[in-house]
């Protein structure tokens, strides 16, 4: 596996549409955390949408080609890292098909005029952290999370969709990493329940009860906040919750960067619809 252990420094980075726009705070904090951990995230030059759920529903072939264009842009010698679970899923699924179907691989290479490596490793940021190991995290710890009670919310896609059953399993890693940084994970809430995804736009009436159910389960466990690995989940949980009081929803990268001593958090947290600053101030995590 290229770039394991201490050699894991240079990574191609696929931000995806959400982290580029609506969840920019996740992108910025991820860059910050990566910098502190000594990772060099090199944004994939001129990347495009991974294919998304919508294109996959309307036209699978266009969606496949969209994902493959990104793969054709990735230098083969360094792993391609994604933060959005859905992007990761579409990129991996496309790559699997290329490995399975050599004629499709050759056709796509001709289409884009660029070679595509069948050995390209496509990984999630969580996997990078796990490979870095606990020592490096401990070493970078500046602000102990002080027993902050959080629900590690994975959403549906890091929960092993059938196409990726042979892939790495990220179950539990959010909790493991943040426990190391002083947080207390509450795992009995609805941590893998789907947030409603794109239905949030067209059928909010279906999504609101679902989000409320997830949030109520977090409240019942005594959580102070939720930490999510998916930018779309973060948005849905914020905009579709109608319960009071509303718990703050963090991007995983925000909490990680905060614990690792990042200072420009003001700019991230002002972009939240549920202001997390009172909670963090009460916990002496921010001034």
């Amino acid at each position: 596996m290229p770039g394991s252990g201490h050699h894991l420094t240079d990574l191609s980075y696929f931000p995806g549409c959400s982290l580029e726009s609506s969840a920019r705070e996740s992108n910025i904090s991820l860059m910050e955390a990566a910098g502190i951990l000594g990772l060099n995230l090199i944004e994939l030059e001129d990347w495009n949408c991974c294919g998304s759920s919508s294109v996959n529903i309307l036209d699978k072939e266009i969606a496949f080609s969209l994902a493959v264009r990104n793969l054709s842009l990735a230098p083969p010698h360094r792993p391609l890292m994604a933060m959005c679970p859905r992007c990761l899923y579409h990129l991996r699924e496309a790559h699997q098909r290329l490995v399975r179907e050599p004629e499709t691989l050759r056709a796509q290479e001709r289409r884009w005029g660029r070679p595509i490596s069948p050995d390209l490793s496509i990984i999630h940021f969580l996997e990078v952290l796990v490979r870095l190991g606990p020592a490096r995290l401990k070493q970078g710890l500046v602000r102990n999370l002080n027993g902050l009670k959080f629900v590690p919310y994975y959403g549906c896609t890091v929960f092993r969709p059938p196409a990726l059953r042979q892939g790495t399993y990220y179950q539990g890693e959010l909790g493991h990493v943040l426990t190391m940084l002083g947080g207390v994970p509450l795992t009995r809430a609805l941590t893998h329940r789907c947030c409603g995804s794109f239905l949030s736009a067209a059928r909010a009436d279906v999504v609101t009860p679902l989000v409320n159910e997830i949030m109520a389960s977090a409240v019942a466990e005594g959580a102070e906040c939720l930490v999510t690995s998916c930018a779309m989940c973060q948005l849905n949980l914020e905009i579709r919750c109608t319960l009071e009081p509303r718990l703050p929803i963090f991007h995983f990268s925000e909490i990680l960067a905060l614990a690792l001593g990042a200072e420009d958090y003001e700019g991230w947290f002002t972009r939240h619809l549920v202001d997390p600053r009172p909670l963090l101030a009460a916990r002496n995590l921010i001034a």
Partner: peptide, 24 residues
């Protein structure tokens, strides 16, 4: 049966066609 959902997907597709990325 769910024409609104289909319309939403179509608009996402349109956006990707235009920009290569989704513009919310």
């Amino acid at each position: 049966a769910e024409s609104n959902i289909l319309d939403f997907h179509r608009e996402v597709l349109h956006s990707i066609n235009q920009y290569g990325r989704t513009h919310k």
